[in-house]
Design a binder for these strands. Structure first.
Length: 590
RNA sequence: GCGCUGGUAGCUCAGUUGGAUAGAGCGUUGGCCUCCGAAGCCAAAGGUCGUGGGUUCGAGUCCCGCCCAGCGCGCCA
């Protein structure tokens, strides 16, 4: 829906205190004011990682034009005004006006100690916590979950974890498809004795759904009964509701089992399905009418928002009430956004919904603004994502053309992981192996989903996601397990204050570790979990380089050994915390 | 027709919101285990960033046109 407005790097406020970028940005902002006056207080110093130093400030180049001075002059004025304190070891002006900054080792040690001391690996709570509604997963009652639900569930859960880690109040909303016309045929089929739905597995209900559907399509008498049953359901007929509840109950068991297997934080308390909003629909329409937002068009009550036209070049409506008096999904979505703002008091609403619904959700957002429900600074954003594709480049399906069941997909992942773990590490007990296989198999699937830009489609490929090379969950888990192995053998533990950064590999690793909080804040602002993946992968490869060149247990001196042990430990802490934010487990052995 | 989203190495993908020489993994080629987990590491080769203009000190990144692909566009959700 709205594009998020990410804050400039280095201007992240709290939540990133241990990252030197924050400290540097602060020092540079003061220098800008000192050098050029208070009107430059809001300028972003543009602190970036550098290949020529620890960081570089790019602000002089942009400022040169406004000040009508040569960039290098501007740079040197900034450098003169810069308070280096005990943080900055070296500053140099390079090229057209880049300011290269090298930090002192003592600063790195101090900040690493701070990271190690915090439970969240350096994460701090936002200065102004928000109430964030996240609408995700949203499976349909009486249908088995399939790959189509994977991305919403995995991405939404990762975002929920990230926002909570930053101290925001997260209101998970599982918008179940638990109401509407399809329930007419389902309930009618149930009264026909089509299935014993009481507490039975959803697999039965899946077949049950298809049977009901077939009967509905083939038998006009049945179809009419189904329509009547919808009317009874809408009217609150008690025996009909009882049947409906059995379907919902059985489905919930299925969803919960799957969420447990997948390691997703959703619970029954997060269920806010279509049925919740059903009673609100008449009053929503009444309010829209009272506000003059609703007009009769072609027999339907419609809300028109500017900027949307249909194929015929005529304005495109949101249909609040159909010709026949029934309600469609637009009505439910309007009721839901109103509820989330007025009742849940959300500041921010995230719709983790597929990209094809972009226009629809934009219209819902605009209609909510138009109705006076959605008022800044509250905002609604569409966290759109692409499709999961098969090897043929088309939406992933079984060979028979059916939807791929999510349970089967996850179980296959675990089985494949178990086979790999068995081969690579035969010494594990059965119990260890099965626990690790679960972490690796599920982790691989989730990570594959999270690690590329969510708006793009991605190709589902077992061998790639389960590979131990490249940007995969197993590679990160391996890096973590390897560090744990070192720490187990060490027979001593060293505090982060023992870290003395000396070699280039140690320095690179220290800087990488310290960037963690900034990355997490950035993920929350940009709603882009793949940036956390990219960061963790870079962290793991940086550790590997350190591991190759810098002996830990066999370090030259006891001081160096303790320093490297502590640096390894804090790296492990960040890796595990980062994976946890993605909803992925990090076993200590694999 | 209109709109949205994509197009970066043979393949799969990054690219920090306009900065210095566009980076990874796979695959290919060549190295590294008497040494903390080789499930790893190092190196080489591989690019008109779909295309043509524009903006400026500087464009994969911003603007316009075009090409290709996917998706959406009135009572399904």
């Amino acid at each position: 829906m709205t594009q998020s407005t990410p804050r400039a790097r280095g201007d992240l406020g709290s939540g990133a205190m241990s990252d030197p970028v924050v400290l540097l940005a602060d020092r540079f902002r003061h220098a800008l004011v000192a050098a050029f006056g208070p009107e430059h207080a809001g300028v972003d110093p543009a602190i970036r990682p550098s290949t020529h130093a620890d960081y570089q400030a790019n602000v002089a180049l942009g400022l040169a034009k406004a000040l009508k001075r040569p960039p290098r002059d501007v740079a040197s004025a900034i450098v003169s005004a810069l308070d280096r304190g005990d943080a900055v070891a070296e500053v140099e002006i390079a090229g057209p006006g880049f300011i290269n900054v090298t930090l002192t080792s003592s600063l790195l040690s101090r900040e690493l100690a701070r990271v190690a001391a915090t439970e969240g690996a350096g994460l701090e709570h936002a200065a102004e916590p928000e109430r964030v509604v996240i609408d995700y997963s949203s499976p349909n009652v009486a249908k088995e979950m399939h790959v189509g639900h994977l991305r919403s569930t995995v991405i939404g859960d990762a975002l929920a974890r990230v926002f909570e880690a930053l101290g925001h109040t997260v209101l998970r909303q599982n918008h179940l498809g638990d109401w509407g016309t399809p329930f007419g045929m389902l309930l009618e089929h149930l009264t026909d004795g089509g299935a014993d739905a009481n507490g039975q597995s959803i697999a039965d209900l899946n077949a049950f759904y298809q049977a009901a559907r077939a009967k509905f399509d083939a038998d006009p008498v049945f179809a009419e009964r189904a329509r009547q049953r919808v009317v009874k359901l809408q009217a609150g007929d008690e025996s009909t509701l009882a049947l409906w509840r059995t379907l919902v109950e059985a489905s919930r068991h299925h969803f919960n089992a799957l969420y447990r297997l997948l390691g997703v934080t959703l619970t029954d308390a997060d269920i806010a399905g279509e049925s919740l909003f059903n009673p609100m629909l008449p009053e929503v329409i009444a309010e829209l009418e009272a506000k003059g937002q609703c007009v009769l068009d072609d027999g339907a009550k419609c809300v028109f928002v500017p900027g949307y036209v249909g194929r015929d070049d005529k304005p495109l409506p949101l249909i609040a009430q159909k010709q026949d008096g029934g309600y469609g999904y637009a009505t439910t979505d309007l009721a839901a956004i109103r509820y989330r703002l007025a009742t849940l008091r959300a500041n921010r609403i995230l719709y983790v919904v597929g990209a094809p619904q972009t226009q629809h959700l934009a219209m819902i957002r605009d209609a909510a603004s138009q109705a006076g429900w959605l008022v800044p600074p509250a905002r609604a954003e569409h966290v759109a994502f692409g499709s999961v594709l098969g090897a043929d480049g088309k939406v992933l399906r079984t060979r028979a053309g059916a939807n791929v069941k999510l349970v089967e997909l996850l179980e296959e992942g675990v089985e494949r992981a178990a086979a790999i773990v068995r081969e690579k590490n035969p010494e594990l007990t059965d119990e260890e192996r099965s626990r690790i296989a679960r972490a690796v198999g599920i982790g691989a699937i989730k990570y594959a989903d999270l690690s590329s830009d969510r708006v793009k489609d991605y190709v589902f490929d077992w061998s790639r996601m389960l590979a131990f090379d490249g940007n995969t969950a197993p590679y990160l888990q391996y890096a973590y397990a390897r560090i744990c192995s070192i720490l187990r053998r060490a027979d001593e533990s060293a505090p982060a204050s023992a870290i003395a950064v000396s070699t280039p590999e140690e320095r690179a690793l220290a800087l990488a570790v310290l960037a963690f909080p900034t990355v997490v804040v950035d993920v929350a602002a940009s709603l882009a979990p793949h940036r956390l993946c990219g960061y963790l992968y870079a962290l793991a490869t940086t550790f590997s380089a350190f591991y190759e060149r810098c002996p830990v247990l066999k370090a030259a001196t006891p001081e160096e050994r303790r320093s490297r042990l502590a640096l390894s430990a804090v790296t492990a802490q960040v890796l595990a915390r980062g994976l946890d934010l993605l909803g992925i487990e990090a076993p200590e052995k694999m």
